[in-house]
Amino acid sequence: MATDYDAPRKNEEDQSEESIEELKARRHDKNSGKVDEDETEAAESFELPGADLSHEELSVEVKPKQEDEFTCMSCFLVHHRSQLANEKKMICRDCD
């Protein structure tokens, strides 16, 4: 946004009055297209921290290391060989 440094400056009261009027105008525009949402339905999709997940089971499939991959010894992420920065230290370009 360009600033006109030659324009007269406004005091804080003028700025706050204009901003309140602008906010009121925007509020009416935003609420006109708002869709009502069922609060209970939306709340059911959220999980609270500390929820009991003992009945949940996690299954992970570990795939073998590919020929064109390496594990960075700094960040321990698996990268493609093209990201290798230091072959002796086995460090990726992001960590180098």
Rank of each mutant, 00 (worst) to 15 (best):
A85Q: 05
P49Q: 11
C72K: 00
E21D: 15
R93W: 06
H28N: 08
V78I: 15
F46C: 07
A42Q: 05
C75W: 04
K65P: 03
F70C: 03
T3C: 11
F46W: 10
E17Q: 14
E69F: 00
D4P: 08
R9G: 07
L77D: 13
H55G: 15
G33R: 00
V62H: 10
I91D: 01
A2Y: 11
D96E: 15
E37D: 14
M1P: 10
Q66V: 02
V60D: 13
K88Y: 07
E12A: 08
K10P: 04
E17M: 10
K24R: 12
K10I: 03
C95K: 00
S16A: 13
K30M: 07
M73D: 14
N11P: 06
S32P: 02
E22I: 07
H28S: 10
R81F: 03
E18V: 01
E61T: 15
E17Y: 08
A7H: 09
L84S: 02
S45A: 08
F70R: 00
I20W: 09
L53R: 10
R27D: 03
D14I: 03
Q66N: 11
K10Q: 12
R93C: 09
G33P: 02
Y5N: 09
A42I: 00
A25H: 06
V78S: 06
N86F: 01
T71A: 08
G33W: 00
A51T: 13
H80D: 15
Q66P: 05
D4Y: 11
L84H: 02
G50D: 12
D6W: 03
L58T: 13
G50W: 03
H80E: 15
H55T: 14
H28F: 02
E13Y: 06
S82G: 05
A7N: 07
A2N: 12
S54T: 15
G33V: 01
A2D: 15
K63S: 09
E12S: 11
D68I: 00
A7G: 05
Y5T: 08
H55I: 08
R27A: 05
T71V: 14
A51Q: 11
T3A: 12
R26L: 08
S19R: 10
E18C: 02
P49S: 12
D6S: 13
H80L: 11
R81D: 07
R9L: 07
L58M: 13
F70P: 01
E22S: 13
E47Y: 03
I20T: 11
F76K: 10
A42Y: 01
E18A: 06
D38H: 00
F46G: 01
D94A: 14
E22K: 13
E57K: 13
Q83V: 02
P49I: 01
E13N: 13
L58K: 09
R9I: 03
E22H: 09
S54Q: 09
A85P: 03
D14V: 04
S54Y: 05
A43T: 06
N11L: 04
Q15I: 12
D96F: 10
D14P: 02
Q15R: 06
E61V: 10
L53D: 15
A51V: 05
F46I: 05
Q83I: 00
E47L: 04
D96H: 12
N31T: 02
S54G: 12
D38L: 00
F76H: 15
K24Y: 01
